[in-house]
């Protein structure tokens, strides 16, 4: 039972978090910020695209530097 549970956790971790947990954490933070800003008159649609624009290049450059 514990082994199956561990396998499920590993699978979900691989599916959602993957190779770079920083991206998942950053995107979760961006979604939370969107939710907070949506309660104010400030437009908040730009938060997630902006997060993507920063997080994806950072993650890719970090991986490229590590592998070279």
């Amino acid at each position: 039972m514990a082994r199956r549970l561990r396998a499920v956790v590993t699978f979900v971790d691989d599916l959602v978090i993957g190779d770079d947990w920083r991206i998942a954490l950053g995107l979760a933070g961006a979604i939370a910020l969107t939710a907070v800003l949506s309660r104010s008159p400030v437009p908040c649609w730009w938060v997630l695209p902006a997060a993507l624009l920063v997080l994806l290049p950072l993650s890719i450059w970090r991986t490229a530097r590590r592998r070279s």
Partner: peptide, 9 residues
């Protein structure tokens, strides 16, 4: 996810 969090595109 942005729409679900309350954003209007």
């Amino acid at each position: 996810s942005a729409e679900g969090a309350g954003a209007r595109w």
